[in-house]
Amino acid sequence: MPRTEATTEPGTDEASPPGSGPEETLDLRLPDEFLEILLEDGDGTPPAHEVPAAVQKPWDTSADLLDTPADWGPVNTPAGDFHLVPVVPERDLSLITRWMNDPAVAAYWDLAGPETVTAAHLRGQCDGAGRSFPCLGVLDGTPMSYFEIYRADLDPLARHYPARPHDTGIHLLLGGVADRGRGLGSVLLRAVSDLVLDRRPRCARVIAEPDLRNTPSVSAFLRAGFRFFAEVDLPEKRAALMVRDRGLRDLL
């Protein structure tokens, strides 16, 4: 999965040196979701005789892992009414493919090409056992952005930073050229990260990892209330790890 966003707003911030505070300490207690995943058998269903009674329940991983973003509902923003709508590949493939082939997007998402390229990416998102939620950002009734809401603590990203249970990540691209360069990315990132914190009470932090070279994207996150946490080397890029803390959401 690409770990980057295409927005267009500039800025920098300082990173705290690794190990400089309690935030760098990794909480090693495994969340319940890890236990559930380890207990899955080949068809994705836990063998009932091997699952502790407290874990047995209808196997709805999408609801368990991300608290059902499809039900989060619309919110009012300074740019208009905004709604996260689940991606339906059969309906949305052409639109998202067109966005992915925009040079400004392709430079960081690396998904330019025919519809089969985008389809494979969306299939991976939709088949991720509830760890990721791909959605369209609909502003005043018009689809204009693509989001991925994902469990950062259950993602390979967690190998590269001190993850905490229920850390939730965001990827964003703005689809139309006319929607870039006027602060809209920051408005939407703040709105969506607010939704995460409001609808996911167990989540203390929202995480993002735009490409460090993508200054407009890093700036958009800073303006949306994220802080620059560290530089991290990921397999496909050197990233700026951005964090929005629940405790600081009203201060930044």
Rank of each mutant, 00 (worst) to 15 (best):
E90A: 14
L252E: 15
P143Q: 07
V192L: 11
P52R: 05
E40Y: 07
H83W: 09
R202L: 15
A230G: 14
P235G: 13
H121W: 15
V55W: 05
D67W: 13
F229Q: 11
C203D: 00
E23F: 02
R159L: 15
A208W: 09
A191I: 01
R249Y: 03
A152P: 02
V117L: 05
D153H: 11
T116I: 12
I207Q: 05
R190A: 11
V138C: 04
L38W: 14
R202G: 15
P165S: 12
P2K: 05
G130P: 10
G185D: 00
D60G: 04
P165D: 09
Y146D: 04
G183E: 10
L30D: 13
T68Y: 12
R213M: 13
G137M: 03
A163W: 00
T68W: 12
D27T: 10
T68A: 12
E33I: 11
V51K: 04
G124M: 07
G113F: 11
D179Y: 14
G225I: 06
P31N: 12
S217F: 03
V85Y: 08
E236K: 10
R151M: 01
V105D: 00
E115A: 05
A106G: 04
M242R: 01
V206C: 10
N101A: 00
G137W: 02
F34I: 12
H49Q: 08
E115I: 00
G11T: 08
S94I: 11
G169V: 00
S94R: 14
S20R: 10
D110P: 03
H160T: 09
H121F: 12
M144D: 06
S16Q: 14
H166Q: 02
D43R: 09
P216Q: 13
L39H: 03
S16T: 14
V232M: 04
L241I: 12
P134F: 07
A63W: 07
A239N: 04
P210R: 12
M144F: 09
Y146H: 09
E209W: 09
D64T: 01
S193A: 13
A224G: 04
A112W: 02
L172Q: 09
L197H: 03
A119R: 10
L197C: 05
R91Y: 06
F226T: 04
F229N: 07
P47M: 06
G225F: 05
L212Y: 09
G137K: 08
A6P: 05
A239R: 02
E90H: 08
A106S: 08
Q125G: 07
V117W: 01
G42W: 14
P89D: 06
L241S: 07
H166A: 05
L157D: 08
T61V: 08
L93D: 10
R164S: 14
I170L: 11
S217V: 03
E36Y: 00
G80T: 06
P89H: 03
L28G: 12
P74S: 10
L251H: 15
R202P: 01
A220K: 02
T97G: 01
A63T: 10
D81Q: 15
G73M: 05
L195T: 03
D250T: 14
G185Q: 00
P103R: 04
L248E: 14
A191D: 04
